[in-house]
Structures are given as C-alpha cells and as structure tokens.
C-alpha cells in the first residue's frame, strides 16, 4: 500500500511542478514568475522528501532544508529588487 501511495503522490507532485512551470513560462508579469518559482521550490522540497522515503534514507533531509532556506532568501532578494531597485542599500 505504501509503494502505491508513494507512486501516486510523486506523480501528483510532478503534475503540480509542470503546472508551476507553465506559469513561469506564460505568466504575464514579473511577480507572477517569482510566485511560480516560489511555489516550485516548495514543491521540490516535497519531492525530495518523498524520494528520501522511497529510498529509506535520511541523507536527503539536509538537501530539503538547504533548498528551503536558499529559496526563501532568493524570493526575498528578488522582491526587494523589484520594490526598491536595489537589494542592499
């Protein structure tokens, strides 16, 4: 049962990432693309955690934590650039 649920949830997260990729490509404005990238890194955290469950290994947890921190910092940096025209004033 767990294998089946893992496969289904990996497929659903892959579809979610493809939808986010569509918004990155089409999105009419710049904040749309930043929002789609923000959603994509959150989805990829879930995919990495699912991969760790699949392999039964704890190694991939650190990768997920790194992606969470760097994704947040990059989103804040790009938003500050859009707001102020500069990141560190």
């Amino acid at each position: 049962m767990l294998d089946f649920a893992l496969k289904i949830s990996v497929a659903l997260f892959a579809i979610a990432i493809v939808l986010n990729l569509y918004r990155v490509a089409v999105g009419p404005s710049l904040p749309d693309r930043i929002l789609a990238l923000d959603t994509m890194y959150v989805n990829s955290i879930a995919l990495i955690v699912l991969f760790g469950i699949w392999l039964g290994h704890r190694t991939y947890f650190e990768a997920a934590l790194l992606i969470a921190m760097l994704g947040f910092v990059s989103t804040v940096a790009v938003c500050k650039y859009l707001l102020r025209g500069d990141i560190i004033e």
Partner: peptide, 26 residues
C-alpha cells in the same frame, strides 16, 4: 496513516498549483 498523509498532501499541492495556473489575476 502514512499513505493517507501522502495522498492528502499531494492532492492539496495539486489543487494549489491548479489555482496558480488557472486563476485570472495576480
């Protein structure tokens, strides 16, 4: 329980991404 949490989380993620792709304005 683990299978339920996995399916519920992935369905929520799919619904959120569908909203991101289909809604009208930012």
């Amino acid at each position: 329980v683990i299978a339920f949490f996995l399916i519920a989380g992935s369905i929520f993620a799919l619904i959120g991404s569908l909203g991101l792709a289909r809604m009208k304005d930012f």
